[in-house]
Nucleic acid binder design. Structure first.
Length: 243
DNA sequence: CGGCTTTGACCAGCGC
DNA sequence: GCGCTGGTCAAAGCCG
């Protein structure tokens, strides 16, 4: 009988923790919605300025003047194990390593469109969600996009969505002028998603929430990450009218 | 045959 | 000084 009682206590404890986490997540979601609404209001009045550094650039001069280091998250097809990010440029792979914190190998690429182009990129599967590839761009292209491809420019700091080349979706976390600035990723679609409600899935959700809350508590750049999430949300919506 | 990818080796930076 | 880790090099193999 003691075992049953112990289990019951553990269950109650877990329920309390679950409730606490749920409350925290609801607060997060509420704050996200408020920020998102404020962002939409702001972007309606001064859209190009607000979006600088995030997901939508329309002007090539803004693209070329943008930051020299950025990260892109690219969703891949299920079962696609390759580390190829289609971004309109030609890349030569020069190395691959398995890093300490991620069992997936990291691939190293150099821009191969012109011999002297200094741009490099690193591509690694996202640890939290293996459906995503994380590409880190360093440097700036000293040339324009290959006109034969007809694809939009996607140099570091620019963030034009790649049209017609890939069915993937992506959002970009700008690292601005500091390439060593840490960044975190947020999947704010967690609430209200259509995941199955199996027990393993509930545990998965709880674990994810726990991870998010922990990372938020530790990371002073929450605002940056939240802005990136807003940018992602913007990217998934129909393009707002430009003035 | 030339260009690209793969992969083991090598090097530099950093922490202990 | 040593070991660990990330980044780069370069030889070998593959493919069109």
């Amino acid at each position: 009988m003691d075992a049953v009682e112990t289990l019951r206590e553990e269950l109650e404890q877990l329920q309390k923790e679950n409730e606490a986490l749920r409350s925290m997540f609801e607060v997060m979601s509420r704050k996200y919605r408020m920020l998102h609404e404020a962002y939409l209001r702001e972007s309606n009045s001064q859209f190009p300025t607000v979006c600088r550094g995030f997901t939508r650039f329309e002007r090539p001069d803004v693209q070329l003047a943008a930051a020299s280091c950025s990260q892109v998250f690219v969703e891949t097809e299920p079962g696609d194990e390759s580390l190829i990010v289609k971004d309109g440029f030609q890349w030569r792979k020069y190395g691959q390593k398995v890093t300490k914190n991620n069992p997936s190998p990291r691939a190293y690429f150099k821009c191969a469109m012109t011999p002297g182009c200094p741009v490099k990129k690193k591509v690694q599967r996202c640890l939290e969600d293996k459906a995503f590839l994380m590409a880190t761009y360093e440097g700036q292209h000293n040339h324009d996009v290959d006109p034969t491809t007809g694809q939009s420019l996607s140099s570091p700091g620019s963030s034009a969505m790649i049209s017609g080349t890939t069915p993937t979706s992506e959002f970009r976390v700008p690292v601005l002028d500091n390439p060593f600035r840490p960044s975190i990723t947020l999947d704010l679609n967690l609430s209200g998603s259509n995941r199955e409600n199996s027990s393993t899935d509930v545990k998965y959700k709880e674990k994810r929430i726990e991870e998010y809350v922990a990372s938020l508590a530790k990371d002073p750049n929450f605002t940056v990450a939240l802005a990136a999430a807003v940018a992602r949300s913007m990217a998934e919506q129909p393009k707002p009218p430009t003035p």
